[in-house]
């Protein structure tokens, strides 16, 4: 509820932050941000094809980290490693390590369900369940066995508020979620993902199927969400990465070419391939 006055009052247009004014630099006022996720020598194999090649990076806490790169470069595979959604794919093999606040997420003694509660995810194609708006938001709580009405009610209001959807749907919480517009559905998916109070929020190209206005709303939302969550966003759209993220990683053919603060990466890339990509020479 904390953000609702800001979000509901007058709905400002797109928050475009120029790189220069970004508070993203790790060495700003608060000092270096904590590291939420550490990726170490991560390789992912689909059968004999190596989709991710020895990626190592550190994702800071409560910042927006964007992963960019051309189609098929392994962005989605990488992001799906963070909540182990890749486990379902037959013939997939993972080497290396990912630590969430120091804990190895591939540790067999750790429960994948607990991990997924800590790491929420929003998908490219909005995928609300064929249930009511209310039931969509509380889904994560219900599968955890939470059944107290008061808890569910307050979670619904809080999550929808944070996802900037409450005012639009508060009068029809019990109607089908599938009747919402595409942008509303995507924000509902965000509400669903944050209802379980995750620490990390993964967004896999959340705006690729949305029109510019809906996209703007989601980008604006990210700006407020990062006060509470560590956000990793995969995007095709370099302008979007530049607008919303504090850090950016550039992936090419499964390799992490460059990872740096967004303003640095977009203004003074070290690698010529990064420069070629961000200036639109390929990809």
């Amino acid at each position: 509820m904390m953000n609702s006055p800001l979000l509901t009052a007058g709905r400002p247009s797109v928050v475009v932050r120029r790189p220069g004014t970004s508070p993203a630099a790790p060495s700003s006022v608060e000092g270096r941000p904590n590291i939420a996720i550490e990726v170490e020598q991560l390789s992912v194999w689909y059968g004999k094809i190596e989709a991710i090649k020895h990626v190592t990076m550190q994702i800071p806490e409560r910042r927006v980290t964007a992963l960019i790169g051309p189609s098929g470069c392994g962005k989605s595979t990488l992001i799906r490693c963070f909540n182990r959604l890749n486990d379902l794919i037959e013939g997939l093999r993972i080497e290396g390590r990912i630590r969430l606040y120091g804990q190895d997420i591939f540790d067999p003694s750790r429960d994948v369900i607990t991990l997924r509660k800590r790491v929420g995810m929003v998908f490219q194609k909005s995928n609300p369940f064929p249930k009511s708006i209310y039931e969509n938001v509380v889904y994560g709580l219900r599968v955890n066995g939470e059944g107290r009405r008061a808890v569910l009610d307050s979670t619904v209001e809080e999550s929808l508020n944070r996802a900037a959807l409450w005012d639009e749907v508060k009068d029809r919480l019990y109607t089908s979620a599938l009747r919402l517009s595409g942008g509303q559905q995507q924000r509902l998916c965000i509400a669903r993902a944050i209802a379980t109070e995750p620490e990390v929020l993964l967004l896999d190209e959340p705006c690729s199927a949305l029109d510019p206005i809906a996209t703007a709303k989601i980008e604006e939302l990210l700006y407020t969400l990062k006060e509470r969550y560590t956000i990793i966003i995969v995007t095709h759209n370099m302008q979007q990465a530049a607008r919303v993220s504090d850090f950016t990683g550039f992936l090419l053919m499964g390799e992490l070419i460059e990872f740096d603060a967004t303003d640095k990466l977009f203004t003074t890339p070290h690698d010529p391939r990064t420069e070629a990509y961000i200036t639109g020479r390929f990809g």
Partner: peptide, 10 residues
């Protein structure tokens, strides 16, 4: 839909 449910911790 399956992925969404699993990602919610189901």
């Amino acid at each position: 839909l399956r992925a969404a449910s699993l990602a919610c911790g189901a």
